[in-house]
Computed example of a mutant assay.
Amino acid sequence: MNRALIDRWNNADALYATPTGSNDDWYWLYVAIKFKCLIVTNDEMRDHLFQLLGNDFFPKWKERHQVHFSFTDTGPEFHMPPPCSVVIQESEEGHWHIPIESEHNYESERRWLCVTRGKAAMIGQDFSASEGKC
């Protein structure tokens, strides 16, 4: 069954074999950017020097374009990129949103710690925190 699928992809020119010894990550990165598509991989890409793209660019891009996957009894399960960035953020109202690490880091399991500034009348309490989804 897998061989038939690969043959179908080959016949449709949907596969590209990278040259031996070449860094294949540069190929899929180029295609993903050129065609504005998502990439399906569990590879966290830590072993390559994407710092050439700047300190913040590649991690932000990867966060929005990488689809993780796992296998269940019913087949593969895909974990789409989060609908919003999962970095610490401050809203216009001064509320802080801090992502809490989940076991698999999948968006469906993501929890946030929301921290808000206390009211001016509450002297001596600058912040109050509540845990939950924001």
Rank of each mutant, 00 (worst) to 15 (best):
N2R: 03
P76H: 02
D56T: 12
H104E: 11
G21W: 01
E93H: 13
A32N: 13
L38T: 10
D24A: 13
H65T: 09
S91G: 04
I98R: 11
Y16N: 00
Y30D: 07
Q89L: 13
E77P: 03
E90H: 06
N105H: 14
R111T: 12
C37S: 09
L52N: 14
F71Y: 02
C84N: 15
H97E: 06
F58L: 01
S128T: 08
D73S: 10
K119P: 15
L5K: 09
N105M: 15
S128W: 10
L15C: 14
F50T: 04
A12P: 00
T72P: 07
G94H: 06
H48Y: 04
E44I: 07
S91V: 05
G124H: 08
H68D: 15
S70R: 05
C114A: 15
L15R: 15
V31G: 03
K133R: 14
T116E: 10
A17N: 02
L38C: 11
G75P: 05
C37F: 07
Y106T: 07
H95C: 13
K133D: 10
M122A: 03
W96M: 01
M1P: 11
G132C: 02
E92L: 07
F57H: 06
A129W: 15
T72Q: 07
V40S: 04
K133E: 12
V67W: 05
D56R: 07
G94F: 09
N11K: 09
P82F: 09
H95I: 14
E93T: 15
H79S: 03
D47E: 12
C37W: 07
D13F: 02
I98P: 08
E77M: 09
E131Q: 14
I100R: 01
E44Y: 09
G21F: 00
I88T: 11
T20Y: 01
S102Y: 08
V87Y: 12
S70F: 01
E107Q: 13
E103W: 14
L15V: 15
I39R: 06
F78K: 00
L53P: 10
E101C: 14
A120H: 10
M80L: 09
E90L: 05
F69V: 07
L29E: 03
Q125Y: 06
E90P: 04
L38N: 13
P99W: 01
P81F: 06
F58P: 04
V86Q: 03
H65E: 13
R117G: 00
Y106R: 00
S22R: 01
E131H: 12
F57D: 04
N105F: 13
F127P: 04
D25H: 06
D7M: 02
F127V: 09
F58V: 01
V40E: 05
D25I: 03
I100G: 00
S102M: 09
T74C: 15
K133A: 12
I100F: 00
N2I: 04
L53W: 07
T41P: 02
Y16M: 02
S130F: 08
N55Y: 09
I33N: 09
F71T: 08
Q51T: 11
A120V: 08
I123N: 03
I39G: 04
T72R: 10
N42A: 14
Q125L: 10
F78T: 03
F127I: 11
R46G: 06
D56C: 04
Q125P: 04
E107V: 14
T41M: 07
K60V: 11
F57V: 05
S91K: 07
